[in-house]
């Protein structure tokens, strides 16, 4: 089976970075579907995440700025302390409103905004974390016919977030970090 996708949105918190780095190391060079990474980051520490990811990835890594257009071959990183949303024209909007689940960026918000725009052409992936953020967003994606993936709780460094997600809705796929690469390679790009 292969699956059509216009955007892959990945949410993660504590314990998710290692999974993402492995993913970037192993994904083949032909992969060009835009990826949005929504990670809970420390707003104080001037983070080198963008550099770290660029170094590991053949995708163009970019920290989102307001009204950037979603492009193929790009991996977008949510800036610390802003929510990231998507508009109908395929541009990002940043938002500095209230935190959700004590988080900004909030995975729920990004997933919902992306699902409104991409509907069944969205793939949402939720990884390790110690927070309930993302679970409701994943359900929202599923209700709009998108494809949902949850990291197998036993495989996650911190299983709380995947557990929450599986309590709120059944995922289309429950995968280990290692299986994720293979899954992503079965996606093919379709325009929104």
């Amino acid at each position: 089976m292969t699956y059509p996708a216009s955007l892959v949105a990945i949410g993660g918190s504590a314990g998710s970075l290692q999974v993402i780095l492995t993913l970037l190391d192993t994904i083949n060079a032909g992969f060009s579907i835009p990826v949005l990474l929504v990670l809970h980051r420390d707003p104080q520490g001037e983070s080198r995440l963008e550099e770290l990811l660029s170094f590991r990835s053949h995708l163009v890594v970019k920290e989102v700025e307001d009204k950037d257009i979603v492009e193929r071959g790009h991996l977008y990183l949510c800036p610390a302390d802003y929510h990231v949303l998507i508009e109908d024209d395929g541009s990002f909007s940043l938002d500095y409103s209230e935190k959700e689940h004590f988080s900004r960026p909030s995975i729920d918000l990004a997933f919902r905004a992306a699902a409104d725009v991409y509907k069944e052409k969205l793939v949402g992936i939720l990884l390790s974390g110690a927070n309930a953020d993302g679970a409701a967003g994943l359900r929202y994606i599923k209700e709009r016919k998108g494809t949902t993936v949850v990291q197998q709780p036993a495989d996650a460094l911190v299983r709380y977030m995947p557990d929450q997600a599986l309590q709120q809705s059944s995922a289309d796929f429950i995968l280990t970090g290692a299986e994720l690469t293979h899954f992503l390679q079965r996606l093919y790009y379709v325009s929104p």
Partner: peptide, 12 residues
């Protein structure tokens, strides 16, 4: 206004 964030304001 940016539609996605306006929508969130109203839902909130």
């Amino acid at each position: 206004y940016s539609k996605a964030s306006f929508k969130r304001r109203i839902e909130r």
